[in-house]
Write a protein that binds this DNA or RNA. Sequence first.
RNA 1: GGCGAUGUGGUGGAAUUGGUAGACACGAGGGAUUCAAAAUCCCUUGCCUUCGGGCGUGACGGUUCGAGUCCGUCCAUCGCUACCA
Length: 713
Amino acid sequence: MRGQLKRLGFGYDWERELATCTPEYYKWEQWLFTRLFEKGLVYKKTAPVNWCPNDMTVLANEQVIDGCCWRCDTEVERKEIPQYFMKITDYAEELLRDLDKMPGWPEQVRTMQKNGIGRSKGCEVQFGIEDSDETLKVFTTRPDTLMGVTYVGVAAEHALAIRAAENNAELAAFIDECKHQETSEAAMETMEKKGMDTGLKAIHPLTGEQVPVYVANFVLMGYGEGAVMAVPAHDQRDFEFAQKYKLPIKQVIAAADGSEIDMSQAAYTEKGVLIDSAEFTGLSSKDAFGAIAKTLSETNKGRVQVNYRLRDWGVSRQRYWGCPIPMINCPTCGEVPVPEDQLPVVLPEDIEFDGVGSPIKKMPEFYETSCPKCGGEAHRETDTFDTFMESSWYYARFASVGHDDAMLDERAKYWLSVDQYVGGIEHAILHLLYSRFFHKLMRDEGLVDSDEPFHNLLTQGMVLKDGSKMSKSKGNTVDPQELVEKYGADTARLFMMFAAPPEQSLEWNDAGVDGAYRFLKRVWHFAVDNAEALHGGTYDWSQAADEVKKARREIHEQLKQAIVDFNKYQFNTVVAACMKMMNTLTDSKLAEADESSRNAVWAEGFSILLRLLSPIAPHISFALWRELGYGDDILYASWPEVDEAALVRDSIELVIQVNGKLRGRIEVAANADKASIEEAARTEENVARFIAGKDVVKVIVVPGKLVNIVVKG
RNA sequence: GGCGAUGUGGUGGAAUUGGUAGACACGAGGGAUUCAAAAUCCCUUGCCUUCGGGCGUGACGGUUCGAGUCCGUCCAUCGCUACCA
């Protein structure tokens, strides 16, 4: 791998190489984790995982196929187990706000992050429970529809549901069924929406009316309060649920413009004007939000609340390979972080696999320990960290590599933020959000002094093979080694840069590599065949022949475009510009032009070409640059500059349209006035034919581009 | 289901701002060179055509003198969706 990267000519600083699976690296994320635990930014709670009862193992979402285990096809269960969470939600507001201060990130990624964080302003509303002192809290973004509530839904794991099921076998069975659902968001959203009446009655906080409490499989324990108020008239999911279970639908919002609403087929989810809502009737949705929130607040039945779609980051993995979570579970003291002087907790690698679960869970010599607080017998945590933990801060460690005394040293403050980060678009939300979170955590530890990790972001498209993303697990990867061996590194690089702009995904296909190879051969042969002529020197261009002036103009036009494209990281068109330059330089008319001016434009053009090409095909550019005596090392050559004087034209070609359709072309002086351009356009032979006998309504002249003659009749 | 993207010749793709659609290549066809081949060089190459021109950027509408580009609706494909890394 290292050899291959070197051979491709990448200029990495290998002294900074690090491996995130070494204890020297992961020690510091263990250290940070224990610090965060002490700050209250880490906590433990139960959360669901996909469990295969046959393999006795936890499955990743992608290992669950149609609700069954990928290996043994057993139906997967949802299991609640205790896991560690990091309070990313404490930073949700900042993570959202700072997105507006990141112009170096693609709009697309910022939008995805905004949606991922999913800030929503709403109300927490408390319902009473009939014949009970308990209250049921729900979160809603539409308190204006509160008067339209006809039932409430609770998650299967909700305390009320579990209690109600104690004396209700049917309900217990339904809750059990909910436990067999997959945990992925996609599965949750596409499954059939089901529910069951608990028999409990909730008391509406404003009217005091009783509404039924349903257990619903689509209500998530982990979001909001694990309960929802249902307004079938104004929420599509509630509407479908109400129709299915014959629950009442009560309209409380009318269209603001007074138009009729047909509610036989679908809910009316727009905002509007309240109707049939007691003292709130007649208010707009917006005003009702405030009014209802105020009433709830005054009666202690609710308050305005901001909620996020973003959930706290569950970092526990029941897998072997990974960084051990540096915690000790003590029967007396509870969760206790491993003291700093005992870090790192090293993952034992002399283990035996029996294929069932993580081996360290069966290794007393690993998990048996004493509590750092009370000294009593205790067990080490045997879960490992989510691997996103490692990838969330490696960029910072590059700046402090080799420093053994701390996670980061002063060098990190000097180098960060990263000027240019490059990563696949598939990481647009998770990896980039976690890295941003980590950066802020490290900042609050005083380790870095910037707010964001990556100043500029380029999101690469994916290279696909056989229509899907290349991945080691799918085995559809392509090794560039073959190309390098057959054609050399420069051809491989040029070909890959030429294939497509980097943001775009691309189906891998090496047809076309011959073209890249041919081009570099042409460059090489041109230099070798014309070595004497390419030495150049200064030249008075005003004396040059027309062919030479034209060639020079083209070269500088191509250079101008190439610089624009380079700045956009659009390397495919930079390569195209280089190819065009080569075509200009080898044009047969130019070859026959006066030798001294021709040699001058050859030398100037070729030196520009080599410098443009050097980041893409460094080896050939380096060799030819030195061979032709342009300088010692092309890496230290100045970047080529456009000579505006070379771009000046005496005459320009204009396109003539009639009613927007191309009908002719005219050559006019570059400084021609509008009237003479119009006259020339009208008299052009083909154009005249198309406007003959018609009324000219309008003539549009776009300077330097075209003339459009609008005719009628 | 939600969110984000993408859709242009046989193929990869190009088209700063709404202004000549198909740059630059690949492939294909024809020619030159060669005993022959490889390599190289030259020409042609969106579709249709009565050779005037007509059509054409996923589909259907709209705005505009002018739309690949802006707006609306729809279709298809890809990515992410919190335990793949």
